[in-house]
Deep mutational scan, measured.
Amino acid sequence: STHNELEKNRRAHLRLCLERLKVLIPLGPDCTRHTTLGLLNKAKAHIKKLE
């Protein structure tokens, strides 16, 4: 159905954006896999440090 396709595309776009963010944020050497929340929290902390 159309709704399923739209949802699939939305999730794919979100995944792509999170992958791009992961490249930009210093995550530390001990981190190989992150939850979305963990990645967003690290991004928030990094932005605050830059301010």
Rank of each mutant, 00 (worst) to 15 (best):
residue 35 T to V: 12
residue 12 A to H: 02
residue 41 N to E: 09
residue 19 E to K: 04
residue 49 K to I: 01
residue 10 R to G: 06
residue 8 K to P: 04
residue 7 E to A: 07
residue 10 R to Q: 08
residue 21 L to M: 05
residue 48 K to I: 06
residue 38 G to D: 07
residue 50 L to M: 05
residue 47 I to T: 03
residue 24 L to C: 11
residue 14 L to Y: 13
residue 23 V to K: 15
residue 8 K to W: 05
residue 48 K to P: 02
residue 3 H to A: 10
residue 46 H to L: 11
residue 11 R to H: 09
residue 32 T to M: 15
residue 31 C to F: 11
residue 36 T to I: 11
residue 22 K to F: 01
residue 37 L to V: 11
residue 51 E to Q: 08
residue 17 C to E: 02
residue 12 A to R: 06
residue 15 R to W: 07
residue 19 E to R: 04
residue 11 R to I: 07
residue 40 L to N: 03
residue 39 L to Q: 00
residue 48 K to F: 10
residue 8 K to Y: 03
residue 18 L to C: 03
residue 25 I to V: 10
residue 11 R to Q: 07
residue 51 E to S: 15
residue 21 L to P: 00
residue 10 R to P: 15
residue 26 P to R: 14
residue 38 G to P: 04
residue 30 D to G: 14
residue 44 K to Y: 08
residue 19 E to I: 05
residue 36 T to W: 14
residue 34 H to P: 06
residue 27 L to I: 11
residue 42 K to F: 07
residue 7 E to H: 06
residue 2 T to V: 02
residue 6 L to S: 13
residue 4 N to L: 04
residue 14 L to W: 14
residue 50 L to V: 03
residue 10 R to S: 08
residue 27 L to R: 15
residue 21 L to N: 00
residue 27 L to T: 12
residue 26 P to N: 12
residue 7 E to N: 14
residue 13 H to I: 04
residue 43 A to R: 01
residue 36 T to M: 14
residue 12 A to Q: 06
residue 24 L to H: 09
residue 40 L to A: 03
residue 25 I to G: 07
residue 19 E to W: 01
residue 23 V to R: 15
residue 41 N to G: 11
residue 3 H to I: 06
residue 18 L to A: 07
residue 17 C to T: 02
residue 5 E to L: 05
residue 16 L to F: 08
residue 41 N to Y: 01
residue 8 K to E: 07
residue 41 N to T: 03
residue 45 A to R: 09
residue 14 L to D: 07
residue 29 P to K: 15
residue 49 K to E: 00
residue 35 T to A: 14
residue 6 L to P: 15
residue 23 V to A: 15
residue 5 E to F: 04
residue 22 K to W: 00
residue 51 E to P: 10
residue 2 T to E: 09
residue 38 G to N: 07
residue 41 N to Q: 02
residue 19 E to F: 02
residue 26 P to E: 09
residue 2 T to H: 10
residue 23 V to G: 15
residue 11 R to L: 10
residue 17 C to G: 05
residue 11 R to S: 05
residue 10 R to H: 10
residue 4 N to Y: 03
residue 12 A to I: 01
residue 41 N to D: 06
residue 35 T to G: 11
residue 13 H to C: 04
residue 16 L to N: 10
residue 47 I to D: 01
residue 43 A to W: 06
residue 4 N to D: 09
residue 35 T to D: 05
residue 21 L to V: 02
residue 7 E to I: 04
residue 13 H to M: 09
residue 28 G to Q: 10
